[in-house]
């Protein structure tokens, strides 16, 4: 396997990680909710896509148009009905972190339980767009390529929106200084709810795309949460482009380790790199030191 093919395979793999991580970085960075149930949102979307595809014969790409707004709405409701009370009550960021970890941990169980009752614990998969695309001699699955394309386009679009529009500036202000943001007339709660919902929508998009090529079970959510969390921390909390780059980087590292070192160490390498980044630059590879 040449270096080029390894790199391409890594980038495509990383596309999935990046796609999954961007929603979490919005939720955690802007809405300040450490959402442990994030992965279960992804799984729920995957099941939704599975139902649409299998039961109603809806093309998963069209399914995106249904599932993503669904994820957005669901997350919005979760924030408004449950999480906003925690935010209102928290005295400082630390307290909110502990509260949100605990609450979303409970939420994780609820979602998982509902999925288990609805679908059972079985492995679920279907296949869509599982055709090879040739990129510079490397054969890549079209569905995974789609994940990469989606990650790149969503990442860049959102980045532009966040940096170039008034609305985006408001969201960023909330991320950096929620108290002061309120002083300059930003409805912090509304902005946070929106960011959280947006994150949920992104998770749903990730879920639909992942369901096209990956086997999932009702209980697999936590795996996605952890992968996403690693990418988010590496990229710098709240940093969309950071998450994008960190996701791609992680994919490349895993593929390189698998190719040149030992496939048995890919996950160990992931965690090792992650720990090193945390120690060396706790603000993330792309985060700024003072925030």
């Amino acid at each position: 396997m040449t270096l080029t093919t390894a790199l391409i395979a890594g980038l495509v793999l990383g596309g999935t990680y990046a796609l999954v991580a961007m929603g979490l970085t919005l939720q955690y960075g802007i809405a300040r909710i450490m959402n442990l149930a994030y992965g279960d949102t992804i799984i729920t979307a995957a099941f939704a896509a599975f139902i649409l595809q299998g039961g109603l014969a809806v093309n998963p790409l069209l399914g995106l148009a249904l599932v993503v707004p669904g994820g957005f709405l669901l997350s919005y409701l979760i924030y408004r009905l449950i999480l906003s009370h925690l935010v209102a009550r928290a005295s400082d960021r630390g307290a909110l972190e502990v509260d949100s970890i605990l609450t979303t941990f409970g939420l994780l169980f609820v979602i998982q339980g509902v999925l288990l009752v609805l679908f059972g614990g079985n492995y679920t998969s279907y296949s869509f767009l599982n055709v090879a695309v040739d990129i510079m001699g490397a054969k890549v699955a079209a569905n995974r390529l789609l994940a990469l394309a989606l990650a790149l386009s969503i990442g860049l679009t959102l980045y532009l929106l966040l940096t170039r529009t008034r609305w985006g500036t408001a969201l960023r202000a909330v991320a950096v200084a929620p108290q002061s943001a309120a002083l300059v007339g930003i409805d912090v709660n509304r902005a946070a709810a929106f960011a959280f919902a947006l994150g949920g929508g992104l998770a749903a998009a990730g879920g639909v795309v992942i369901s096209m090529y990956q086997t999932f079970t009702a209980t697999a959510g936590v795996v996605f949460t952890m992968k996403a969390l690693i990418v988010v921390i590496m990229g710098g909390v709240g940093n969309l482009l950071g998450a994008l780059c960190a996701g791609l980087l992680l994919g490349v590292v895993e593929t390189l380790v698998s190719t040149y070192v030992d496939p048995g160490l890919t996950l160990a390498a992931t965690y090792a790199i992650f720990l090193v980044v945390l120690l060396w630059r706790p603000q993330g590879l792309f985060g700024r030191v003072a925030r």
Binding site: A9, T255, S258, T259, T266, L267
Partner: peptide, 17 residues
């Protein structure tokens, strides 16, 4: 003769090898 960790979902490298 290769071993991969539980939870691996990308086998591009292994299959190429």
């Amino acid at each position: 003769d290769r071993t991969y960790p539980v939870g691996t979902n990308d086998f591009t490298t292994l299959l190429n090898e």
